[in-house]
Structure formats: C-alpha cells, structure tokens
C-alpha cells in the first residue's frame, strides 16, 4: 500500500493578511508559511498507519504544486516522516490547475491512497481533492474523520448531517480529510530534520492546464459596529436588546 498526501502551504493562521498592488495580490512580506492544518493531520495519520507493520504501508509520499520557494514546507513534511516528495514546478492560479498538476504526479507514480485536506486555510475552496478524484475517475470520500486498514481493506468514517457513517472503499481512492483523522499533528524530531536533508524531492514539469477562475481584487471584511455592553448585574438588558433591537430572539 502506497500513500500520497497532498500538501499545500498557507500563511500561518495568526498572520494578519495584507494585500498589495491595489488589493490584487497577497502581500507576502512577513508571512510565516506553514503546512495547511488538514494536510498536516492527513500526513500524521498516514505515518501512524505506516508505523503499524500489520497495515502493510510501504511508503508515504507528499505532493506539492508550487514554486521552489515552497521547498522549506516540503522539507518540513519530510522531517515529520514522509519518505519522498514530489513537487510540480508551477504557480497555479486556481484549484482546477492544482488538481490537474496533482493528476500528473499520480500518473508518474501510482498510489493506493491519496489524501487531501478538506480545504486550504487561504482560499477556503474545498475543491482540489474532489476535482482530482474526478480527473482520475476514482472514488472519493469527503469529510473523513477516520481512516484505517483492516485485512487489506480500507475503512473510512465520514461525518454526515447528524451523525457518522462507515464505508469501505476500493483502492485507489481519494480521501478528503477533516479534523479528527489524527489527534495532534506530528512534530519533526531532530533526527527527522537531519534525515530530511537527504530525502528525494522529485521535480515534475507542469501539465498544460488553464485556470477556470481568476481573482480580481481582495477586500477586507466590513467593519462591525462597536460592542455595546450590558451591566453584568442586569443580563435582562441584554435579552431586551436581542429581542427588540437586533430582533433575533
């Protein structure tokens, strides 16, 4: 069993995002880049599965679509424990382009389980995983919060409205991962960081694919009105405001 974890790198969630060139581009100065949180959890779960020899996971690889500036993020994934990495040297402009490049990685080296985070915390699209599955004509399961291997069969848990569902899935398949798949993201050890330096990052030429969308401008969210405080001794006042002023009760 071979696992591929698709990783995107995103501004650290505490970063104050700013825009440049008349709000048409993200201002990258001072941004701390991290592995997208759901991708990090996917990688952690993949490594947990590999740790248990009974699961028969041969290797865990990571894939990234982006320019050379993303290599520190890829090295970090290798330091956490991935065996190898693929990078498509492209600057994708939308999810469709990213998925088309990831497809090329799958065609270069076969995998049984492909994991993608449910969304990236920058563009919040939730699109790449399912687009990739459709491009490869593979089954996929979205919003999975559990993944295990039982006698060679893949069992996933997915969240449905008001509950949970367990499914078996044929490989190869694309798993789109949400919170709960792993408890805490695994952290790189000193030894891992040393080993990562010599692990291979295979460079892949981009596939031709035009974006279907384009972002023209970014706007900050509308400022909210200042907070109106009720007296802690008199919470009935708050209820009165919610009822008669906001009209939400």
């Amino acid at each position: 069993m071979r696992i591929l974890v698709c990783i995107s790198h995103v501004p650290d969630t505490t970063t104050k995002v700013k825009f440049a060139e008349n709000n048409t581009r993200l201002d990258q100065t001072g941004i701390q880049w991290v592995i997208n949180p759901w991708d990090e959890l996917s990688l952690t779960r993949a490594l947990e599965l590999k740790d248990d020899a009974g699961n028969g996971v041969e290797s865990v690889s990571v894939a990234h679509v982006g320019p050379v500036s993303a290599e520190p993020t890829i090295r970090k994934a290798l330091a956490i424990g991935a065996d190898a990495a693929f990078r498509v040297d492209a600057e994708p402009r939308d999810a469709y382009q990213v998925a088309a490049q990831l497809k090329k990685i799958f065609e270069t080296a076969a995998f049984d389980i492909i994991l993608c985070g449910i969304e990236s915390s920058d563009y919040n699209g939730s699109n790449v995983g399912s687009m990739l599955a459709e491009m490869l004509d593979l089954p996929s399961v979205s919003a999975i919060s559990g993944l295990r291997i039982e006698n060679g069969a893949i069992i996933v848990t997915r969240e449905i409205d008001g509950g949970k569902e367990q499914l078996s899935v044929e490989v190869p398949f694309v798993g789109i991962v949400q919170k709960g798949i792993a408890k805490e993201p695994r952290i790189a050890s000193m030894r891992g960081i040393m080993q990562a330096r010599t692990k291979p990052i295979q460079l892949i030429e981009p596939a031709p694919a035009e974006p279907l969308t384009a972002i023209s401008t970014f706007d900050p969210p509308k400022p909210r009105a200042a907070c109106k405080f009720a007296d802690p001794e008199n919470p009935a006042q708050l209820i009165e405001w919610l009822q008669n002023e906001a009209k939400v009760l």
Binding site: N127, S130, M131, I160
Partner: peptide, 20 residues
Amino acid sequence: NAGKSLAPRVSVRLKAALAS
C-alpha cells in the same frame, strides 16, 4: 458536505468554473 464533494466533480466533468 454533499455540495463540497459534488461541485468540484461536476466542475471537472463540465469544465465549468466553480466558486465555493
């Protein structure tokens, strides 16, 4: 959940731009 898993697939099938 359902829309997020369907829309991207339909987008690829129809080569239709998707905004989520």
